[in-house]
Design a protein around this nucleic acid. Structure first.
Lengths: 201, 201
DNA sequence: CCATCATATATCGGATCGATACATTCACCC
DNA sequence: GGGTGAATGTATCGATCCGATATATGATGG
């Protein structure tokens, strides 16, 4: 979902500053399935204000200068409801961890073991986060459903890692010396009799 | 992982054209944890060629004009190995589906039911994809580990959806008329006694 | 007494996506 | 025979978005 819509969604739970919206994507209820950076949040809020989707009130407390508190308007709420009617596309997942694991054979087994340990800690943390958010904002059935989903996924991931860490490491250490050089020699389907001309440069 | 590194990774399994690399991110072994578009793949390949990481051979078959087949070089292989040493960051997940489910209360229960049905079909498809890739490219322990991980996650997701679809829909239909207007009246922690000045415009 | 963290706004360059244009082959159907 | 559309391919453009950074202030703490 684009950042503007995400900002509207964040503001639906109450007024907030740009900074607070960022935190909602880092630690709050959206943390595990949406994200946005300052570089997109602030421009989005400005655009939403110009479009009348949000209103701003500048809070001048003690010392701290301008602190812009954003509130969603009726138009903004209508806009969000409209966006909720889209057909959701593919989930986008980008995991450096799985990328590294994909090439386990090219790395030292110890390194692979460390990576898995780190990832298990990471998933433990994720479960703690969900539990914490669960206490902080009880909320309705939609949120509970999403939280439950996250819990199920992370629990399964954790189980998979603990079940398969040792087997993988065993396999890597036994076949260690061989180094299969990954696609050099007998590569996949070497069938193409096109005339090829080597490019210069 | 940046697109350049992803291209090198794709080429490690054998030579390929830009088009084929794209397909590897859509249907191939990387499909479920990395992605890239033409708009980033082609510039990346050009940059990699200039840096000597890949070499190009233009295949002039019958009819079809220039078809640039890319091959990873030794320098490219070294570069990839270096990139494998990074510490992996957070997995990035962006799910429109969970975003929509988060706001279940604002939508018709039938619509929610449809969304869940669609997502179950989507996860079924994902499991089929993994099974298909498993047959097409047997490969080593790293790939098997990643595939197993995906299988575990999708299976858990599927189970969660089938277990919780009906309970959610029941909850939504019973509380239907109420429409909790999400954060308007008794919003979260209304404690801030800063002087606020309403912004014009 | 100064480092450093948390709060807070904002911008810039670059990475990346999504859509699109273009060109050709092949399969299919009428 | 001819037309339509899918698949294969390269390539670019605008819009979006991220990551790093600059700026400023108060609180915390060694």
């Amino acid at each position: 979902m684009d950042v503007k819509t995400c900002c509207l969604a964040a503001l639906l739970t109450g007024e907030a500053t740009g900074y607070e919206i960022k935190k909602m994507f880092e630690e709050g209820p959206f943390a595990h399935f949406q994200s946005a950076s300052f570089g997109s949040i602030y421009p989005s809020l400005t655009a939403l204000r110009k479009a009348g989707m949000v209103s701003v009130s500048t809070a001048t407390g003690e010392g701290r200068p301008d602190k812009k508190v954003y509130v969603i308007t009726e138009a903004g709420r209508a806009e969000l409801l409209e966006k909720l009617e889209i057909t959701p596309g593919r989930d986008q997942i980008r995991s450096d961890f799985l990328f590294l694991m994909f090439f386990s054979e090219l790395q030292a087994p110890d390194r692979i073991g460390d990576l898995i340990d780190q990832r298990r800690a990471y998933f433990d943390q994720a479960l703690d986060d969900i539990a914490r958010v669960e206490v902080e904002s009880p909320a309705g059935p939609g949120r509970a459903f999403v939280r439950g989903f996250g819990k199920a996924i992370y629990t399964a991931a954790l189980r998979y890692l603990s079940d398969n860490q040792k087997p993988l490491l065993d396999e890597l250490t036994t076949n260690h010396g061989s180094r299969p050089d990954a696609g050099g020699g007998n590569g996949p389907d070497a069938e193409h009799d096109n005339k090829t001309t080597q490019a210069a440069e």
